[in-house]
Design a binder for these strands. Structure first.
Lengths: 214, 214
DNA sequence: GACACCATCCCCCTGTTTGTGGGATTGGTT
DNA sequence: AACCAATCCCACAAACAGGGGGATGGTGTC
């Protein structure tokens, strides 16, 4: 049944609820091919233990007592950039997901994920994948679509207006933009006025914010 | 073997290479539970056929002759927002992926994806998921991480300076920021000065650009 | 062909906002 | 004692925003 004696996947768990920590440990220990080599109750312990133990993958909760799991990932990744970290949490709001990804997490699962799926996701993360639950993948898609709709507003700008906006967003003065585009100062001001009208803003910063959000 | 006679999944294919179009059709037709109800060679045909035929899912190539598959998705989604569309393409560059997602695509697969995986992904997209190949999911993660690293620069700001910068980035006037933070106009200007020094910029726009790139 | 429309280009005037140079005081850390 | 975050003030110049105005050329429509 086991032709090659594959080494176990060495898993670290960071989770403050001792109940959940134990049930996760049991679940993985029961599964052939997995081994829990570290189970920490807080971020501080994790940051000292994990670099010593060097597990194959880390399962990280977000709602930890002092330092959040997201900050913990950030620090861990600073030391061990290639250590796969899977967030395993109850938070299904977008900001938690996005901040986890920004901090370097390699996947984001909700705690109600089935045991079966968890095991699959661990394997996927180890292979370089980014396992997300369906809902979370949907949020990532939404994020990009929202950006897309702002892009539609920017699309109403004429060619010259768009060029002007791009240079505005790089911080150039009107005078510098005029030089770069070979226009007069006044013409640039005219375009800026049109840009404001089309994007429904009334300052350079607001226009640039919209543009960059696209 | 088939206790309930489930209706077939009705698939539309938009692909300019007739070779690929046929091999995809064969592949899906051979698979029980799938049926190809529409196979278009270009975006224009797809835009007239698909709203009539109303398939359960669309497989879309990007490299189409006149109108790109991405623009085709955008238009299709404008009429049929809930129609699942899977991009199936040879382009593995980030911009194609991101633009597809912005246009409303529900997944992004590379053409070298195994037949098995394709069938799975169609099912996943129909269930509201966003199937991405591992490499593409990795690009999405990279995108968020890149954003995260720039954040370190902003970390040198003090609490008040950061609060000020956040409001600057929302386009508020100094006076409005002063009101919101319960400070005097002059104090806000003082913070702005410090922000410029720490971020090595010399205008509001440049500061906001740096902040938003984080 | 006349007319409207729009993108492109340019100018003036007025007021507000921002950028930069100097100050100052308080309270907390080292 | 030295330092620094946090708070406030003044003055001047540069940049920006909003209100006018007008000219050209191309694309349409009626």
């Amino acid at each position: 049944m086991t032709p090659q004696p594959l080494p176990n996947v060495r898993v670290a768990i960071v989770e403050d609820s001792s109940r959940l920590r134990e049930s996760l440990t049991e679940l993985l220990t029961a599964h052939p091919g997995f081994e829990v080599v570290c189970a920490c109750r807080d971020a501080e312990t994790a940051l000292t233990q994990i670099p010593k133990i060097l597990p194959d993958i880390v399962l990280m909760d977000i709602g930890l007592p002092r330092m959040s799991g997201i900050d913990c990932v950030r620090q861990l990744k600073a030391q061990l950039p290639s250590m796969p970290v899977l967030m395993l949490t109850v938070y299904d709001e977008g900001p938690f997901l996005f901040n986890s990804l920004k901090a370097g997490a390699n996947g984001y699962l909700l705690k109600r994920t089935a045991a079966e799926k968890l095991v699959e996701s661990i394997q996927e993360a180890r292979l370089g994948g980014v396992p997300l639950t369906r809902q979370m993948a949907g949020k990532v898609a939404e994020y990009f679509q929202q950006i897309g709709t702002i892009a539609a507003e920017v699309a109403t700008l004429t060619r010259r207006e768009r060029e002007t906006l791009e240079l505005l967003a790089e911080g150039f003065l009107y005078k510098e933009i005029a030089d770069k585009l070979g226009l007069s100062f006044e013409t640039v001001r005219e375009y800026v006025r049109n840009i404001y009208a089309k994007l429904h803003v009334s300052s350079r910063t607001e226009a640039v914010v919209k543009f960059l959000h696209q």
